[in-house]
């Protein structure tokens, strides 16, 4: 029971790291980016390639995966995404679906369609018993990393100048611009970091979530659930939403495997009906 909770929390933390970038994209630029999962996949494959071709140890690949996807995000933001901020949601959806298709087909072509396996270092394998709770070492590793990241992100957001500019821009883009905040630069930076985090999440999660070319399609709905249910104005909302989603998904799959994904989807629809603006959003 507690083991299940622990696994669920690890899963939820992972979802948060994967999707917090998306929440900022959506909140700041009102941009519906269905291709967010493609960045996560890029991170996962970066780790795979580094480990198998260049013999880089697993833990060392994680920052590299972050940097790689952040750079990728920055390039795409400056070249492609930038042109779409003013366009309709339909255009954004079409564009990002197109991007997903391209990513899926390219990865399929380059890496093959089979599921990729990550060889974890021996230190991270296995389980230990603590107070009768069976704890996976790798999952505690994920939880540790994600906790640190959450704290750092929260501190950046609440304590630094960049953070307050970002919050101002999310709250009201036009007023922030009027006050002399360069929203485009903030956005480019945030997009890069968000993509990088997704990439890191993809690398971390390759072992738990599985990694194959259809990853962006398979997990798109999860990211979107986190963001829409959690709302886009704070980090707390998506964080709580990811934890709930993670625990509900793990528990659902364990206790009522027949119900499969129903629990999640039904919960999502109910949430959206009751709180269309997200769990913690202020009413506008």
């Amino acid at each position: 029971m507690l083991t299940l909770l622990f696994d669920g929390i690890a899963y939820g933390m992972l979802l948060f790291i994967l999707s917090c970038g998306l929440s900022v994209t959506l909140g700041l630029m009102n941009f519906v980016n269905l291709a967010h999962g493609a960045f996560a996949m890029a991170g996962g494959y970066a780790t795979i390639v580094l480990m198998s071709r260049f013999d880089v140890p697993f833990v060392a690949t994680l920052p590299l995966a972050f940097l790689f996807t952040a750079a990728l995000g920055l390039v795409l933001e400056r070249t492609l995404y930038r042109h779409l901020y003013g366009k309709s949601h339909l255009d954004q959806v079409l564009f990002s679906i197109g991007l997903v298709f391209v990513a899926v087909a390219s990865v399929d072509y380059l890496m093959g369609s089979q599921q990729q396996i990550i060889k974890l270092p021996a230190a991270l394998q296995g389980r230990v018993e603590i107070l009768g709770v069976n704890i996976g070492l790798y999952r505690s590793f994920i939880i540790a990393i994600c906790t640190v990241l959450v704290v750092v992100l929260q501190l950046i957001l609440s304590k630094t100048r960049f953070g307050s500019r970002l919050r101002a821009a999310v709250d009201d883009r036009r007023v922030a611009q009027g006050l002399g905040i360069n929203v485009n630069v903030i956005f480019a930076a945030t997009f890069a970091v968000g993509s990088g985090l997704a990439g890191l999440g993809g690398a971390l999660g390759a072992e738990i979530l599985g990694l194959d070319p259809v990853f962006p399609l398979k997990f798109m709905i999860y990211f979107l659930i986190v963001v829409t249910v959690g709302g886009t104005t704070t980090l707390t909302g998506p964080f709580v939403a990811s934890l709930v989603l993670g625990v509900a998904d793990v528990a659902g799959k364990y206790y009522v495997p027949a119900a499969g994904a129903f629990v999640i989807y039904t919960l999502m629809i109910v949430f959206l009906l009751v709180r269309p603006q997200g769990l913690f959003a202020r009413a506008r």
Partner: peptide
């Protein structure tokens, strides 16, 4: 055969960038 979604994706991106 296998990768025709790649071209569809490119087409979609081009379509949106040029302007539907």
């Amino acid at each position: 055969p296998q990768y025709w979604h790649f071209w569809i994706g490119i087409f979609l991106i081009a379509l949106v960038l040029v302007g539907r």
